[in-house]
Design a protein around this nucleic acid. Structure first.
Length: 199
DNA sequence: CCCTGATTCGC
DNA sequence: GCGAATCAGG
């Protein structure tokens, strides 16, 4: 993988949007390991890991075992102020047998890496703006209590998230889908076919 | 089995 | 620095 500044920006963008490492890898045409490895090296904010790793090998477990010294304050952490469990937005709002796919080019976009359908972030308002790319801890998608009644715009991303030119399609979204008719046609495809391509 | 993210370690 | 292999939980 050639980690050009653009590629790194894209990675940061995807990462900030809360995509899974495998998903990012798929979109960028690289392995999830590459994504995780790079993210780790870039010291991107870690995601909630499904696993709990123990000291692994080498480190002395003895130290941990022999440290019964009572800790001072055991984190009162009121439920109200506790860290919000950042929602993991699934990029594919796909209905039954279909899922969003990363097409080589939605329309124009001669982007070096495949643009991808974004989860409905904070978008959909008249004044949409690019998702915050490099902010340390990005809240990917703020929960929207109730849907807008009029004119929801297409969520199809144009350009590289996190880069200046990034924007969304301006067409009107279809009834239930987050995309306009044109992009919905591109976005929804057999889920199984989605896996290999991405490049 | 599928998924997930984190770490390790040879390159 | 890179990323496959590996680990480990859901």
């Amino acid at each position: 993988m050639d980690w050009t500044p653009e590629a790194i920006e894209a990675l940061r963008g995807y990462w900030a949007e809360g995509h899974s490492t495998a998903e990012i890898g798929r979109r960028m045409g690289i392995s999830k390991n590459a994504v995780v490895g790079k993210a780790h090296r870039l010291v991107l904010p870690p995601r909630p890991s499904p696993i709990r790793r123990e000291p692994a090998s080498g480190t002395a477990p003895a130290a941990a075992a022999v440290a019964p010294v009572a800790q001072p304050a055991p984190q009162p952490a009121s439920p109200a102020t506790a860290t919000p469990p950042a929602p993991r937005p699934q990029p594919a709002p796909a209905p039954q047998p279909v899922a969003a796919q990363p097409p080589p080019a939605p329309r124009p976009a001669p982007a070096p890496v495949a643009p991808r359908p974004a989860p409905p972030p904070v978008a959909a308002a008249p004044a949409r703006k690019p998702a915050p790319p490099p902010p340390a801890r990005a809240m990917p998608a703020v929960v929207r209590p109730f849907p807008r009644s009029t004119s929801r715009s297409c969520c199809w991303p144009i350009g590289e998230p996190g880069t200046p030119g990034f924007r969304f399609c301006t067409a009107e979204a279809m009834g239930t889908k987050p995309y306009c008719a044109e992009h919905a046609a591109i976005a929804y495809v057999k889920v199984r076919d989605r896996r290999e391509d991405a490049a």
